[in-house]
Simulated assay, not measured.
Amino acid sequence: MTTTQPEKRLKSKRKATAVRMFFSYILLVLVALITIAPFIWTISTSLKGPGDAIFSMPPQFIPSDFTLNNFKTVWTSLPIPMYLINSMILTFFGVVLPLFFSSIAAFPLARMEFKGKNFIFMLIIGTMMIPNEVTMIPIYLIIDMIGLLGTHTGIIITSIITPIGIFLMRQGFKDIPREIEESAVLDGANVWQIFWHLLFPMVKPMLGVLAILSFIGSWNNFLWPLLILNDPNKYPITLGLYQLQGTFAANTRLVAAGAVIALIPIMTIFISFQRYFIEAAYSSSVKG
């Protein structure tokens, strides 16, 4: 039985597609391995005992002298629980407040018509081009003038609303069909009811994305707490790990164990909310 020309072209196309997908997967696996290698090395180092080499070449990822004493030593040598509680306080308000206030700011930019709306939005987006270091000195002086130096409030108040938060929430609100809002207006709903009871629950994927970004930013915040706080009892985990590195400068195993302790909450939150990243990406790709 002879094979027709269209069938030959179809088989050739399928073969080319299979080869392309094979090499694409190989490339993705290599990129994933390169990306995850530092995390694996950190976890491996935190579990190594004194008999294991740390900086050997090639790296030894599976400890032969497995131990959990590094975590115990870190936990008992420094007030890690206090650092974690401080980080949780800062992160809680650093996530909840941006979700609410960014949504409040983005709602009129997405759903209302007024003069200069696009200019205001572009001005907000333009501030993303300004490095944080440029604004640190004036913000520090303002925090000092209002008496918030050395307090958690002085850290939280600077992250209540962000340009990236406004941008994300504006995109989320813009993707909602106008007909839903018009139906609510015909039913007698006011602006607040439309925002809080109707549209706000419909942007959960974007809220999830903003929550993850805000959590990572608040949890990993180092420089601003270092400038604002002067009481070690108020330090978050990032500053606590900074002290940890100074205390155990010669023991990389203990420093790695402290880093793993600080990493666990971030990984937990990301795994819990990763579906919102997927939903937001899928929604954006479908709606263009």
Results as ranks from 00 to 15, higher is better:
Thr2Met: 12
Thr3Cys: 01
Glu7Cys: 03
Ser12Leu: 13
Arg14Gln: 12
Lys15Met: 07
Thr17Gln: 14
Ala18Asp: 03
Val19Phe: 13
Phe23Arg: 04
Ile26Asp: 01
Ile26Leu: 15
Leu30Phe: 15
Thr35Asn: 14
Thr35Leu: 11
Thr35Trp: 14
Ser44Leu: 10
Leu47Val: 07
Lys48Asn: 12
Ala53Pro: 01
Ile54Leu: 15
Phe55Gln: 07
Pro63Gly: 07
Ser64Asp: 11
Phe66Trp: 13
Thr67Arg: 02
Phe71Pro: 02
Trp75Tyr: 13
Trp75Leu: 14
Trp75Ser: 08
Pro79Phe: 03
Ile85Val: 15
Ile85Pro: 01
Ser87Thr: 12
Leu90Trp: 04
Thr91Met: 07
Ala105Phe: 13
Ala105Asp: 05
Ala106Tyr: 04
Phe107Ser: 02
Phe107His: 06
Arg111Ser: 05
Lys117Ile: 05
Ile125Leu: 15
Gly126Met: 09
Ile130Ser: 01
Asn132Leu: 04
Pro138Val: 10
Ile143Gly: 01
Leu148Gly: 03
Gly150Cys: 07
Ile156Met: 10
Ile157Tyr: 10
Thr158Phe: 01
Gly165Pro: 03
Met169Gly: 02
Gln171Asp: 12
Phe173Leu: 06
Lys174Tyr: 02
Pro177Ser: 10
Glu179Lys: 03
Glu181Asn: 02
Asn190Asp: 15
Phe195Val: 01
Phe200Cys: 04
Phe200Pro: 00
Val203Ile: 15
Met206Lys: 02
Gly208Trp: 11
Gly208Ala: 08
Ile212Trp: 06
Leu213Ile: 14
Trp219Pro: 07
Phe222Met: 11
Leu226Gly: 01
Ile228Asn: 14
Ile228Ala: 03
Pro236Arg: 02
Ile237His: 00
Gly240Ala: 10
Gly240Glu: 12
Tyr242Ala: 13
Leu244Phe: 08
Ala250Phe: 10
Val260Glu: 06
Ile269Asp: 05
Ser272Cys: 11
Phe273Val: 03
Arg275Pro: 00
Glu279Ile: 02
Lys287His: 07
